[in-house]
Amino acid sequence: MDANQQTRTNPYGMDEACRNCPALCETRTQVVHGYGDVGADFLFVGERPTARADAVGVPFLRDAGEADGDGDRPGGTTLRRMLERLGLCDATSPADRPAVENVYLTNCTRCRDPDRRPTDEEIANCEPYLNAEIRMINPEILVPVGDRALEEIGTEYTTTPADDLSLPDVHATTVRGRGFELVPMVEPHEQTDAQTQAWLEHFVDLMAADYRQTKGRRER
């Protein structure tokens, strides 16, 4: 991480008392901003905080057997486990404070309603937070996790027609973006074993290649 980074949790000090979405203020436990390495090459973007993330304040955390409360099936793998297999997260680090390196985790929305997904307006309200994180981190690879994140990231950061960006069709592929490459992913807990293995193998190949772009990045 950058030498001046003091914490992985909300390292940019974004507003933790945000009230831009009144309905979500009534249902959230806390505002869940980004978490991780501010010098990361790999930035993962989900749709909204999980139930565990809402309780703890770290994106993508998921209890064993946790479902989202809106029809998603429980169980399956976790993003943390996938990052451990890639060597991007210390497997011995605390469950609620994963020691990720070269990785930043965030969401399109920062607050959770346990019974529904975010509205378009709520996504738009949080867009400045996400755009600021992407701009400040300036990652090499954006990983949209799930359909809604892919829709938002794909629309903003690629010239690929929206109809050509859908999961699982582009799962475990590389999509050229404007200044970034996208490597979309089906929600980890919804992946089959074959989908998990395919994504990991694709990402390992990407990490072994010269993925860095020439866009004035600072030296790590």
Rank of each mutant, 00 (worst) to 15 (best):
P49A: 11
N4V: 11
D210E: 13
G57F: 04
T109G: 03
G13E: 01
I153Q: 06
L79Y: 00
Y104F: 15
R218H: 12
T29Y: 12
P49M: 01
D147I: 03
F42V: 05
A209Q: 15
E133F: 05
D37G: 09
K215G: 09
F42I: 08
G177K: 03
R218I: 07
I141A: 01
E66Q: 10
S93N: 05
H189Y: 05
T9I: 14
T92G: 11
G69R: 12
E152V: 15
L130T: 02
L142S: 10
G13H: 11
N10H: 13
N107P: 01
D2P: 02
R28V: 05
R212M: 01
I153E: 03
S93R: 13
T9Q: 14
T27R: 06
D68L: 14
G216Q: 10
A124L: 12
G146H: 08
E84V: 15
L88I: 15
V186I: 09
R116K: 13
D90A: 14
P11F: 04
K215F: 04
A194E: 12
L79A: 02
A3S: 11
R8A: 15
T196P: 00
P188I: 01
D68N: 09
H33A: 12
F42K: 06
R112P: 06
E156R: 14
V186R: 02
V32L: 09
E133I: 10
Y104R: 04
T106W: 04
L86F: 08
E26Q: 14
R220Y: 12
N20C: 09
A208C: 07
E101C: 10
D210I: 03
V175R: 01
T160H: 09
A198Q: 08
E121A: 10
P94T: 00
V183M: 13
L150T: 11
F60P: 00
T160A: 14
D15S: 06
V204I: 15
D37Q: 08
T7I: 07
M82P: 04
T50S: 15
H189T: 02
W199I: 03
R81I: 09
L130V: 06
I137T: 02
A132L: 09
G46R: 07
D41A: 05
F60K: 02
D63K: 02
